[in-house]
Design a protein around this nucleic acid. Structure first.
Lengths: 248, 248
DNA sequence: TGGGATTTGTTCGTATGTATT
DNA sequence: GAATACATACGAACAAATCCC
């Protein structure tokens, strides 16, 4: 039942592809290439791209080809700071109208996270880790807040894709559980503190890791700049039309 | 010389027209009618409209004509709640990197607010009142936060246009000054508290006035439903006809 | 209720600007 | 450095759906 949906589909597909790291930051996103696999025209693609830009997930300045956004470190810190402020509010609201059923829902989600981690399914783990925060936001029954959290979480996923490491989510499950425990006990300030700390840890894991291909953006750039100058043009792969929509 | 800007102009024009109450909530916004005076085509208008929708300022569901949004009471409360959370964070950040020059800037703005109020210029007063919060957000040097505050403030302006009364901004200047005083003294928690209180007062002034034209359809319906119910069962006071939201 | 005019959703063609050879 | 190729910005036209009378 998708009446106005082809643009919506393009939007969601791109969004998921970006947050799930199928589309690396900096990847070019030509309108034709995107529209072809989905059978839609450039106009619709353009709409989707515009929304993605508003979400901070793609950059499309001037007449240059749109690319997956590459947030700077400053920008990344800004995103995390705002996210922390909003996540704290989420916890407060969830505490205000707490019900045992909420605890069961959250517990169920955490069990799924554990299962995915145990199975070693990186992709699903990342998705569920983000899903925990989205689920919490749903519990507030505040659509405005949900929307912002959704944006922020997606943006953080992109940041993790840029700066983070694959196994960055390993211990996150425990942190999630701690939050739920505090929630169950009705310990508002404790839960707020825990969530704040958790998001900070995610930020640290993303922004302080140094043993991967580069801690800072400038580092990556300068290194590649050297290679490019010595080597040849780094032709970016066109973008894989993966069969994305496997989720609900 | 704005290169990619005609759409931007349309966006800003519409946005200002809505927040300044030149376009009443519910007003239809046909694409042709909008494009004609600005000399731009529907494609550009559509882009502007899409962005406005993302901002929560217009509604454009299905294939119906776009209209200026009419936020419900629930939605309005949600907006204010999120805004409060973010404004508190703004204050904290401004406190963190406070400098005397900031105080001067804020004082200058407040003087402008006073002048406009004294001159009885309602339009300018409203604009400056919003500008105070935007200015504060600028001081954080956090573009992400600035963007959200900008959206939220605009949305609140729309809400005030819908539910509020013309003289709702009368005492706001004093409240702004109180915040700045606390900021100057470096009293973080006091400033945060003051700002939180201020936004709450704005919300109260907007949402507690009920003697106007009562735009809420659900309000009208529930009232009638209450009367009908009371008529059928004169004895039982089964549920309250009016503002039953006695939560918090 | 039904028909007609208006308006939106979408596509495609042209022109302008950028990036590459 | 200039020319070519390509991608985007914008606009006009077509079809479908809505709203009004």
């Amino acid at each position: 039942m998708t009446k106005l949906t082809r643009a919506e589909i393009a939007y969601r597909s791109l969004r998921q592809a970006i947050t799930e790291q199928d589309l690396a930051p900096g990847t070019k996103l030509p309108e034709d290439e995107i529209g072809a696999p989905l059978g839609i025209s450039r106009t619709l693609v353009r709409q989707a791209l515009a929304r993605l830009q508003a979400d901070g997930l793609v950059e499309t300045g001037g007449k240059k080809t749109a690319t997956v956004a590459r947030p700077t470190l400053e920008e990344s810190k800004d995103v995390f700071r705002v996210r922390r402020a909003l996540e704290r509010e989420v916890i407060r609201i969830v505490c205000e109208n707490w019900s045992p059923s909420h605890g069961a829902i959250l517990e169920g989600h955490i069990r799924k996270e554990e299962a995915a981690r145990k199975a070693g399914n990186e992709r699903i783990s990342v998705r569920l880790a983000a899903g925990f925060h989205l689920l919490l936001a749903d519990l507030t029954e505040n659509p405005v807040l949900q929307g912002y959290i959704n944006q922020l979480v997606s943006r953080c996923s992109l940041i993790l894709a840029l700066y983070g490491k694959p196994h960055s989510t390993d211990c996150a499950v425990n942190e999630h559980r701690d939050v739920v425990v505090a929630l169950r006990e009705g310990n508002v300030e404790e839960a707020v503190q825990l969530m704040d700390h958790h998001v900070s840890l995610v930020e640290s894991r993303a922004l302080n890791d140094e043993d991967r291909d580069g801690p800072g953006l400038s580092d990556i750039l300068s290194r590649h700049a050297g290679e490019i100058e010595a080597d040849l043009a780094p032709d970016a792969i066109a973008f894989e039309p993966r069969n994305g929509t496997s989720g609900t």
